[in-house]
Write a protein that binds this DNA or RNA. Structure first.
Lengths: 222, 222
DNA sequence: ATTACTAAAAGACGAGTAA
DNA sequence: TTTACTCGTCTTTTAGTAA
């Protein structure tokens, strides 16, 4: 395969136009402007990206609605991380900083569900406090968060109860203040924005670390 | 021009091989492996990059010594920042965090030099304390620092004294703790690593903020 | 107006070769 | 061994055209 980079560059442009977190509507001639090419090439780029599975499209007489797939996102993340490696010294640990916020209360529910609970105990090696701490990441940490997507985590399997299906996810062990242990839980399918993380811990973190909504907190991924 | 991205991709590889902060020694066949191409194409890539002014080379019978130029670095930085924009929400402010270190003592010298001093007073609108605070950036901030290269700063002109030439640079106004004002000074030509920044301020920052070597500090670029 | 096909032009690629 | 040239082949691009 040759000319791969041109396609990735086109994918990057689509992401910058908003295709990363939603649908971007454009026509070939429009897109051609953005990538400085002829409309034909722009059209071909979109075809190629679709065939590679990096985007999905809905073609309409007035143009097309484009969305970047998980796979496409992965390609961009890999690219991003390579550039990141160039400009940042290799640091052993990933640090994520943000502010405590109140979540949807789901945390308390699913940490007590046997299907998840038993996996947490077995794989994370601690008894999770019923509830999660939600952190809205700030500044650089938002970008840093995407690094986790490339890091192997502890896989939590999904399962079925009689009524519904519970999705899987993955965890990363972290250290909080005062030697407090915990884990970031990232559901496989989430409608949470990328800049919010959920922490499971054996402790009631709000109590132990004296946290309120808005408190600044840093977690250290191991 | 077509196939630009292939060249930038090759430049990225060179950077990852160490060409960003020094000289990388390799032969065309070697480089060909890295970019998955024939030695001919690898050779052509290097030629093209040289012609674009992105690298300089010294060709020797045993191979070549390659170095990425300022211009080449700029290209990579632009690329990096584009990817960064995709994955991080646009935040108005850049935050840099690091630890206080002891510098070379130059700061005290040049903040008192009339040629610089007067520009600081006029452009930064404060009387600089004689001395600078050196901060070694940590983790994400190292990458964040490169963002400054793309941001317009306050230009400090160089000047000549009878004996020597003093180089120019640029400043960025920042806020430190407790509403303390200051500015990052980045000399145009520095042998300082990219992960160290120098802060000028009207105050003696070590005293006012009670800083010692190793103290953690965050500066907020305006 | 689109998208996407076909076909000529342009360009990139790798093999062979010289220095 | 290198680097880098030429050359034939193959790929990619743009123009033109159909739907």
């Amino acid at each position: 395969m040759v000319g791969v980079m041109e396609n990735i560059s086109a994918l990057k442009k689509l992401a910058l136009l908003g295709g990363i977190d939603g649908i971007v509507t454009l026509s070939s001639p429009e897109f051609a402007e953005h990538i400085s090419s002829s409309p034909q090439t722009a059209s071909r780029r979109l075809q190629a990206l679709e065939q590679s599975g990096y985007i999905t499209r809905k073609i309409e007489p007035s143009g097309q609605k484009v969305m970047i797939t998980k796979q496409g996102r992965k390609v961009l993340e890999t690219e991003y991380m390579e550039y990141r490696r160039i400009f940042t010294r290799p640091s052993t640990h990933i640090e994520l900083t943000g502010k405590v916020i109140t979540g949807l209360g789901e945390g308390q529910y699913y940490t007590t569900l046997k299907g998840y609970h038993d996996q947490f105990v077995r794989l994370l090696e601690f008894e999770p406090y019923p509830g999660t701490l939600n952190i809205k990441l700030e500044g650089e940490s938002v970008g840093c968060r995407t690094m986790l997507n490339l890091k192997d985590g502890i896989i939590i399997d999904g399962f079925n109860s009689k009524n519904r299906t519970f999705g899987g996810g993955r965890c990363y062990l972290v250290k909080l203040g005062n030697g407090t242990k915990g884990a970031i839980m990232i559901p496989e399918r989430t409608h949470y924005p990328e800049d919010i993380i959920e922490i499971i811990s054996p402790d009631n973190l709000r109590e132990k670390l004296e946290l309120k909504d808005g408190s600044k907190i840093t977690v250290l991924v191991e």
